[in-house]
Design a protein around this nucleic acid. Sequence first.
RNA 1: GCGCCGGUGGUCCAGUGGUAGGACAUUGGCUUCCCAAGCCAAUAGCCCGGGUUCAAUUCCCGGCCGGCGCACCA
Length: 578
Amino acid sequence: MSEGERLTELAKRRGFFFPAAGAYGGAAGFWTYGPQGAALKSNVEEAWRDRFVVKEGHQEISAPDVMPEPVFEASGHLDGFDDMIVECGECGATHRADHVVEDNTDIEEAESLPNEEVMAIIADHDIPCPSCGASLAGEPVENFNLMFETNIGPGTSSPGYLRPETAQGIFVEFPQLSEYARNQLPFGVAQIGKAYRNEISPRKSLVRVREFTQAELEHFVDPEEDEPPLDRVEDVVLPLYSGESQQADDGGQVDLTVGEAVTQDVVASDWVAYYLGVAKDWYERVGVDMDRFRFRQHLPGELAHYASDCWDAEAEIDGDWIEITGFAYRGSYDLDKHAEHSGEDYTVFKQYDDPVTVERPTVDPDMSYLGPEFGGVAGEVADALDALAARDPEAFDGDEVSVEVGGESYTVPVEQTNFAVEEVTESGEHVTPHVVEPSFGVGRIVYTVLAHAYATDEVDGEERTYLDLPAEQAPTTVGVFPLMDRDGMDDYAHDIAGALRAAGHSVTYDDSGAIGRRYRRQDEVGTPYCVTVDYESLEEDTVTLRERDSTAQKRVSIDGLAETLEQLTAGETTFDDL
RNA sequence: GCGCCGGUGGUCCAGUGGUAGGACAUUGGCUUCCCAAGCCAAUAGCCCGGGUUCAAUUCCCGGCCGGCGCACCA
């Protein structure tokens, strides 16, 4: 059985995750997290929040899942997510229409052409189906959009879309968010939420799904000035698989510290390098096996439209590397787009320490001259003069100056332009922040953590399955059992379970079946500790504390039991030291 | 979306043109004072629709779901 298969089996049996709406046949790409899975996922999210929001001093928001169409016009998802598809009438295979055109003609960027035109090109060139060779001429070219569409309110006049990434919810609100950050760069805004993509074919359980949870951070920085606090992570070792290595015949993964990766320019962006370092430690914390983990650089052809450099965190399962996080330097792409489409201001005003005085060439053309002289183009001539002054002030050195408007040359006496060089005092400038984006796929991380935690060993000649989840992530912290369900041991155990719950622990009480069976149940859901009440407990107020991974037991006092568990799960003490 | 394979209690499987059986799990009881023990009992299933047939879980067609390959993965 593959790792994936045995995990899927355990996940369903123990309540981690299973296909949604199975009673109605299910819907591909949708999964329900059961009690254990929801708890694990929530713990992973909480650990992310702790590290990427709280510890970094960032802010978290929660934007809607549905946004109106213009948001996605601006973000590029309406076009970029919209694939042109042509279906072969012979074999039924579907192909990217723009791709078959590009592959069979000299035409580039066929995606930007209208569907009818692409269809005509296919017919003109009699392009064959890549699968079966039959002609695709005459087959309709249609759109397939990966976004789920809906209508906002009654009717269809106001289309909306389920967001295909949570990021746009942050970008679009930048003007407000900047205000809350007192317009001071840098600042980071995070969001944990659902995103939706109508994938053509969902695969591999939680890996490729149609509804998923993202944990994204958009760190807005001043590209001129802001530097990441690299000293905090410079010694973190990164397993890097660079684009260069991927393309080399004998290339492989190279371990470099964050500091080395930056000085050797393996990771181009210091900001990306910083977050690779932060993230590496975080993956280890939540239970990703570092022997099955790497950072892989996107190849040039793989880069998204907005990214200048991008690294993925990947985890290995069943021999496949799956992307669990993307680290992208998005530049000012997103804010520029929203500024352009919305007409709102997506910049911050950066005030200089000292105002600077600059010499600025200006013109103030005498329109009472230009008007009669040039008629309808007078305004354009004036604009051209203005632009020329900024570009080439020396053009105004002579008696006359010429500009071109609409292919015609217009000559104006310099005297009439009122050319001057003024001293202007500037107190600052408008800056469009650049964005550093670590984007985590929570479900994939949960899946990876489970796959990597899956372990078997032998206890008293019997095979045992357990999840060696980090205590912090485990759905349940402690199982509490009465050795026998009688003689007051049950009451005593109930009291302990109640006290531990009151102290904030996640507790499972179980009095069913033999004690060994109960241990194994908890092993399979990764519960790190079990407490058992026996006859001795009733007289001496002690219990046995059992550790999951070693199955070792120690007798401890019930006084301070909650604190002991707290220290164990926080890693402040070890079981061996008890 | 195309192709191949598959879909039987919660899980893993066996089996059959006359509506099914095991193992594990679950629940109750007995037993048992620390690692899935034993005994008794109970609960629980043929993915959906259509067709062929006296009769379909079984054969055929379509759908849905899953795995794999191709394509896709901004």
